[in-house]
Amino acid sequence: MDQKLQITVSPHIRSSITTGGIMLDVVIALLPALAAAVWLFGARALYITAICVLACVLSELIFQLITKRTPSIGDLSAVVTGMLLAFNLPVSILEWQAIVGSVVAIVIVKQLFGGIGCNFANPAITARIVLLLSFSQSMTYWTKPAGFSSGDLISSATPLALAAQGTEKLPPLFDLAIGKHAGCMGETCALALLIGGVYLLIRRVITWHTPVAFIGTVFLISFFAGDFSLETALYQILSGGLMLGAFFMATDYATSPPTGWGKLLFGIGCGVITVAIRLWGTYPEGVSFAILIMNILTPYITKLCARKVFGAVRAEKVQKT
C-alpha cells in the first residue's frame, strides 16, 4: 500500500459550518429587504446595491492582490458589507459617493486592520457615518418611496425627523412597518428585515440576545419616556435603521461580544444610546452611532462577560501548588 497517510492533530472531522456558508445565509436574509427596497424606491435601489457590492468586492480583491495576501472574496463577506452599506444609503446617493463609501468600508475599516475578523468597528456603519459627515447633504436628502407618491422621487423628511420636529403628520404605523416612508433604502421595511432576522435566528447565524436586548431597550425607554404610549414605543422601534441595525449590524461577529451575557449588555447599551440620541441629540437617527460606540466598548464587555471557567482555581493559588 502507498504509505501516504496524513498526520494531523485531532479532531479529524469538522462541522459543515464555514465562513462562506454563514455569509451566504446573511446575504439570503438580506434579500427580502432588498426586494422591499426595489418595491419602495424603484430599480435604482437595486442599481445602487449592485454598485456597492461590486465596489466592495473589487476593492477587497485589489487590496489583497497589492498587499500579496490570499484573496478571500470567496467568503462573501465583502458582498455582505456592500449590501449593508447600500441599505444604509438614501436611494438618491450619487454613484461615486457610494463607491467612496465602499472603499472606506473595505480598505480602511476592514483590510487595514487585517481583514475579516480583525476590524474593531463595523465596516458598513463606519462608512455610513463617514459619508454622513462628509456628504451630509446627499446623505440626508430623503426621498419618499415611489409607491407612496406617484411619479418622481420627491424629497421628504424621515419619520424620526418629523417626530423630532413635532409635526403632526406622521405616517401611520402600518406604513411604517412595511416601509412606506422616507429613509435609507434598506432600512425602511421593518417587516422584510424582521423576516431576514428570523431566518438568521433559525439558521443559528445569530443568537436572540443582541436583537432582543437592543429592540427591547428602545421599546421600553420610549414607552416610559413617551408617557406610556404604546404607539410612541412602536413608532420608535419600527422607524429609523433599528431593525436593520439590531439584526444585521449589531450582531456582527468581530465587533460584538461572543457570550450571551455580553451580547445582552451590548444590545442594551445600543438601545440606550440610540434613544438618547433620538430624543436628546441633534441627529434624529442614533442607531449607527450607538452601534459604533458599542463596537468600541466591545473589548471591555467581552472581558467583563467572559465565561466562568469550570473548576478554575485563581491564579495565585495555582502557583502555590
Binding site: 496524513q6 494531523t8 479529524h12 472531522i13 469538522r14 459550518i17 465562513t19 454563514i22 478571500s72 467568503d75 463577506s77 487585517g114 481583514g115 475579516i116 475578523g117 480583525c118 461577529y253 468581530a254 461580544p257 461572543p258 457570550t259 450571551g260 467572559a306 465565561r307 466562568k308 471557567v309 469550570f310 473548576g311 478554575a312
Partner: peptide
C-alpha cells in the same frame, strides 16, 4: 476525501468556540 486537509482562514470572531467549550475556555483568548 474524508481525510482531505482543511485550510484555515481568518478567525471571524464568531464566538462559537468560546460558547461551545465544555470547560468554558476561550480558544481565541
Amino acid at each position: 476525501r474524508d481525510a482531505a486537509p482543511v485550510d484555515a482562514t481568518n478567525c471571524i470572531r464568531c464566538g462559537r468556540c468560546t460558547n461551545i467549550c465544555p470547560i468554558g475556555l476561550a480558544p481565541v483568548s
